[in-house]
Nucleic acid binder design. Sequence first.
DNA 1: CGACTTTGACCAGCGC
DNA 2: GCGCTGGTCAAAGTCG
Length: 319
Amino acid sequence: MNEMKQNHDISIVRINSVEKREEKKELTRTALKTENFNMANSTFITPPPTSDIDHMPNVFSLSTPPPPPPPTSSIFDMIPCDISTGGDQKAGSLGFMDLLDINQDFGASASLFDWFNQNPVVGSPQQQQSFVPSPASTVPETSEVLNNPATPNSSASISSSSNEAGEDAFQQVKAGDQEEEQDQDKNKKQLKPKKRSQKRLREPRFAFMTKSEVDHLDDGYRWRKYGQKAVKNSPYPRSYYRCTSAGCGVKKRVERSSDDPSIVVTTYEGQHIHPSPIIRGSIGILADSSGFGAATSSFVFPQPLYQQKDASMILCPLR
DNA sequence: CGACTTTGACCAGCGC
DNA sequence: GCGCTGGTCAAAGTCG
């Protein structure tokens, strides 16, 4: 429980479903374009030298934070980060969904993905923030999450590569999702000849970093582990999980940061096509009130990781 | 006995 | 073409 009062870190990143290298190049370009968005009140991470950026797994521009949440009946403490003013970050009592402002109005968005789509980086420089990971933060190369674990103020970020190219790619992938799912089903059915001839398109991915003792955080969904691989330049293996719900192709990868073993990097890929089978606490309320978790929701955000005793996190916009 | 994990093998993509 | 790496498969093992 004390951990909840400690510094917590989590960052959430929307990952475009483009090939990793294209991602990297595009995002690098974006970062280079936006790296001068240094604001007086920002927690700005000094961009690395251009030559270093090539070696960075990714760089992201920070998406516009959601509008302030409406009054809520959540049983959780609602102490949302003051996004507009950079106010208190009383993360110790923040629920994960609260931190995400997920129980707020996502409008017509059926999902967080949709919401991200409808809320690209817009507006003033105060709203738009470049986010370039610190060179010291070398999350393993496959990690798409790249905030700085050592970011002061325990700040974390909802980040997205919300540049135009990224949006386009994201939209394209969304449009191709159904097709892809069908292909995946076909692949599953035609198991023996392990042919994956078609170039694999990536589903939209979210990644976040969690300070946690436990590798596999209980997010409310049921997962089946289907693989584990040693990660290059990291003593910690990466685990691969698939959602066990029939027809749900959501995957997640879990790995520990080699730099900070207390940080677990979780990457979600795909969209749940079903509500979470395990509704805890007020998440159901939150889900209902926001449309998240509804059967029609195309993506149900990971559930209350913060409720786990070994997990601690904070989610506030980096500024 | 079903659900899940472990683990070695396989495949695809990419860089050299 | 070859080797490396990430991602996935699937048989075997484990657990409740």
